[in-house]
Simulated scan of single mutants.
Amino acid sequence: MSLTLRVGVVGAGRVGAVLAAGLQAAGHTVVAAAGESDASRRRAADLLPGVPLRKPSDVARESELLLLTVPDDMLPNVVKVLADSGALHAGQYVAHTSGRHGLAVLAPAAAVGARVIALHPAMTFTGTAVDLERLHGCVFGLTAGPAEREVAEALVADLGGRPTWVPEEMRTLYHAGLAHGANHLVTLVSEAMGLLAAAGVDDPAGTLRPLLDAALDNALDHGDAALTGPIVRGDVQTVAAHLADIAAKAPDTVPSYVALAWATLDRAVTDGRLLPIRAQSIATVLNAYGERRFVHHPRVESA
């Protein structure tokens, strides 16, 4: 499907400015953007030179495709205000980029006859031109009615992405999977670099990079079969030594280490890679450093 649209973006943040620039490069016309912060204005100047910055209602009135790229918690109010002000109109495409929300949040727009789409890029953004290349091959989580599906897929194709369809009732779970994988990965890696720095390693990032690259590739390709390390091997004394040193030298990391160790232990026991007696011993160690728990396996008694 080939179409060119007059595009407006409300929320010229990291996501909005990049997607608008990507659509402009594909032949669409970006007619206006709304962004209040200094960072948004700089981004618009860099990625959308010559595109005027206007009030959200003015952007909406001028657009055939309105991109709403505001934070999740702001989205319901933004949609309602634009609809109530008469800025949205019948036949207009209104798309948001929230992972959590589906079409329900766009109900005020649909009520005035707008054609609504949920279009979420499963990628982390820097808000710079670097992201334009990263869009190629990026998966977009789409939710739309039958009449809007073709347009939604065409927009993703224009951005160089790949569509995946997410049912309305599964949007929050879909988003939770992405956030758990990506956002918590950043926390995990930052804490791991902190432990290495505390151990005197002069290049924590360079030390971790090849290990993490291999671990991520293996996990994506093989799932739980990629698990390695002291818990899967049943090295009880190593886990105990880890926690003793972390507690002494980086105590803020103890809760996340223990939580992830429990999750790893449960998965290793469930798939049969760890003998129950070893799991029992590791559970005893973990229970000494946090809320008392049991291994989730019928053959393993509580510690």
Results as ranks from 00 to 15, higher is better:
Arg6Asn: 10
Val7His: 06
Val9Gln: 03
Val10Ile: 15
Val10Met: 04
Gly11Asp: 08
Gly11Asn: 08
Arg14Ser: 09
Ala17Ile: 12
Ala17Gly: 07
Ala17Glu: 06
Ala17Asp: 08
Val18Trp: 06
Val18Leu: 09
Gly22Met: 08
Leu23Ala: 10
Ala25Val: 00
Ala25Cys: 00
Ala25Ile: 11
Ala26Arg: 02
His28Gln: 03
Thr29Gln: 15
Val30Trp: 08
Val30Lys: 11
Val31Asp: 11
Val31Gly: 07
Ala32Asn: 09
Ala33Gln: 00
Ala33Gly: 15
Ala34Pro: 06
Gly35Pro: 03
Glu36Gln: 03
Ser37Gln: 12
Ala39Asn: 00
Ala39Thr: 04
Ser40Gln: 14
Ser40Asn: 10
Ser40Trp: 04
Arg41Met: 03
Arg42His: 15
Arg43Asp: 01
Arg43Ala: 03
Ala44Pro: 05
Ala45His: 11
Ala45Gly: 15
Asp46Lys: 10
Leu47Pro: 10
Leu47Asp: 10
Leu47Cys: 02
Leu47Asn: 05
Pro49Asp: 08
Pro49Ala: 09
Pro49Phe: 02
Val51Lys: 11
Pro52Tyr: 07
Pro52Lys: 13
Pro52Ser: 07
Pro52Gln: 09
Leu53Trp: 01
Pro56Asn: 15
Val59Asp: 03
Ala60Thr: 02
Ala60Ser: 09
Ala60His: 12
Ala60Gln: 05
Arg61Ser: 14
Glu62Thr: 08
Glu62Phe: 01
Ser63Asn: 09
Glu64Arg: 14
Glu64Val: 13
Glu64Ala: 11
Leu65Lys: 14
Leu65Asp: 07
Leu65Ser: 07
Leu65Met: 06
Leu65Val: 04
Leu66Asp: 10
Leu66Tyr: 10
Leu66Ser: 05
Leu66Cys: 10
Leu67Asn: 15
Leu67Gln: 05
Leu67Trp: 08
Leu67Glu: 04
Leu68Phe: 05
Leu68Asn: 06
Leu68Tyr: 11
Leu68Pro: 14
Thr69Gly: 07
Thr69His: 07
Pro71Val: 13
Pro71Ile: 14
Asp72Glu: 15
Asp72Tyr: 03
Asp72Ala: 04
Asp72Asn: 05
Asp73Trp: 13
Met74Leu: 10
Met74Glu: 15
Pro76Phe: 13
Asn77Glu: 15
Val79Tyr: 14
Val79Leu: 03
Val79Gly: 13
Val79Phe: 14
Lys80Phe: 00
Val81Leu: 03
Val81Ile: 08
Val81Phe: 04
Leu82Trp: 11
Ala83Leu: 05
Ala83Trp: 12
Ala83Lys: 08
